[in-house]
Amino acid sequence: MSVKRWTGKESQLLRLAVRKTIRQFASDIGVSGRMVSKWEAGGIKVVPRPSNQLALDTVLSCAGPEVQERFATSLTEQAAIDADPRTETLLAQKAAYHRHPVDGRLMALVGEGMYLSGETGEAQWLDAFYIDVFPTTNADYGRFVAATGRSAPKHWGVTGRCPDDLFDHPVVWVTWHDAQAYAGWAGKALPTSHQWEKAARGAKGNIYPWGDRATAAKCNVRDSGIGHTTPVGRYRSGASPYNVYDLCGNTWEWCATRSVPGRYELKGSAYTSPFERAAPSSFNDANSDMCDDDTSFRCVAEHPWSRMDVKP
Rank of each mutant, 00 (worst) to 15 (best):
Q53I: 05
L54G: 06
A55H: 00
A55W: 04
L56T: 06
L56S: 00
D57K: 11
D57T: 03
D57L: 07
T58D: 11
L60H: 08
L60N: 01
S61F: 07
S61P: 00
S61T: 13
S61C: 00
S61N: 13
C62D: 10
C62Y: 06
C62Q: 14
C62S: 14
A63E: 07
A63H: 01
G64S: 11
G64V: 04
P65Q: 14
P65I: 04
E66Y: 05
V67A: 07
V67R: 05
V67N: 07
V67L: 00
Q68T: 02
Q68K: 15
Q68Y: 05
Q68C: 04
E69T: 10
E69Q: 10
R70M: 08
R70Q: 03
F71C: 03
F71P: 04
F71N: 01
F71W: 03
F71L: 00
T73V: 12
T73E: 09
L75E: 01
L75T: 05
T76Y: 06
T76A: 14
E77A: 15
E77Q: 12
Q78R: 12
Q78N: 02
A79S: 14
A79K: 13
A79V: 02
A79R: 12
A79H: 07
A80L: 02
A80P: 00
A80F: 03
A80T: 06
I81A: 15
I81Q: 10
I81R: 15
D82K: 03
A83W: 03
A83G: 09
A83T: 05
A83R: 02
A83Q: 06
D84S: 01
D84E: 06
D84V: 08
P85C: 11
P85I: 12
R86P: 02
R86Q: 10
R86H: 11
R86I: 00
T87N: 14
E88I: 14
E88L: 15
E88D: 08
E88F: 04
E88V: 15
E88S: 15
T89L: 06
T89K: 13
L90M: 11
L90D: 08
L90H: 05
L91W: 02
L91N: 05
A92C: 10
A92L: 06
A92M: 08
Q93D: 12
Q93W: 08
Q93R: 15
